[in-house]
C-alpha cells in the first residue's frame, strides 16, 4: 500500500506528488525489507542474489551491526508486490545464517536517510537563492572553504530528492550521495528478540535430550 497514513516528519517543503512518486513505481509499492543475519562473511552476496534471481532491483541497501551482539542488520528497499516481498523473505530466511527477514510498507516503520551535497562555493556566493533553498530544506552546512561547501541533509528520501532537484536547477552540485534508507519498526514487539529467545529455548531442549 502507498503510504497514506504516514505522519510525515517533514519540513513540509517537499511536494506530495514527489512523495507518492517515490512510494509507488509501475504500480508496485516500495517495500522496506529488514534482514538480520549472523555476522558471517559472504552473506551479503547471498542476500542480494535472492533479489537478482527474481528480477527485483534493489533501490537502497544499508548494512551494519545491529543492537544484538553478533547480528548484522540489512535495510533494503525495493519496488515489488506483496507476493514477491513474501517470496523474497522466505528465500532469504532459507539461507542458513539468516535469522529473520521481514518486509514493511512506509507506514509501519520510522524511516530516515542522510545525504551529502558538495556544492561550489563561488556558485553559492553568486546566487543567493542557493542558501535560501538550503535553509528552506532544513539542511546543515558542515564545511565551507573557498572552493566548495558541504551540505548535510537528513530526512525522508522525498525531502532529500526535493533538495537535490532544487540544487540541480541552480547548477551548483559538485557531488551528491545518499546513505540509503535506514529504518526501525514502529511495532511494540521486537520480533528478532522473540525469535532468538525461542531458538535458545529449543537449544536448551536439545541439550537436555
Amino acid at each position: 500500500m502507498p503510504n497514506q497514513n504516514n505522519d510525515c516528519q517533514t519540513c513540509g517543503k517537499c511536494d506530495k506528488n514527489a512523495r507518492e512518486k517515490n512510494s509507488v513505481r509501475n504500480g508496485m509499492p516500495l517495500h522496506t525489507i529488514l534482514v538480520y543475519s549472523e555476522n558471517i562473511s559472504g552473506l551479503l552476496s547471498q542476500i542480494t542474489a535472492v533479489f537478482t534471481r527474481r528480477q527485483v532491483n534493489i533501490e537502497t541497501l544499508n548494512v551494519c551491526a545491529s543492537s544484538t551482539p553478533g547480528v548484522h542488520k540489512y535495510t533494503i528497499t525495493c519496488y515489488c508486490d506483496t507476493e514477491m516481498a513474501e517470496m523474497l523473505k522466505k528465500q532469504m530466511e532459507k539461507r542458513i545464517d539468516v535469522l529473520q527477514a521481514n518486509y514493511f510498507t512506509d507506514d509501519q516503520i520510522y524511516i530516515q536517510e542522510t545525504a551529502l551535497f558538495k556544492l561550489s562555493t563561488p556558485a553559492i556566493l553568486e546566487n543567493n537563492r542557493i542558501s535560501k533553498v538550503i535553509r528552506i530544506h532544513d539542511a546543515k552546512i558542515v564545511e565551507v572553504n573557498p572552493t566548495y561547501s558541504i551540505v548535510e541533509k537528513t530526512g525522508l528520501t522525498e525531502e532529500i530528492l526535493s533538495l537535490f532537484d532544487s540544487l540541480t536547477e541552480l547548477e551548483c552540485i559538485l557531488q551528491f550521495v545518499r546513505s540509503g534508507r535506514i529504518a526501525v519498526t514502529k511495532s511494540r514487539i521486537e520480533k528478532l528478540d522473540e525469535y532468538i529467545q525461542l531458538r535458545e529455548k529449543k537449544h536448551a531442549q536439545i541439550m537436555e535430550q
Binding site: V98, R199, K202, H203, I206
Partner: peptide, 8 residues
Amino acid sequence: VDFIRSYD
C-alpha cells in the same frame, strides 16, 4: 554441531 540458531 546439532544446533544452529538461525536454522530450524
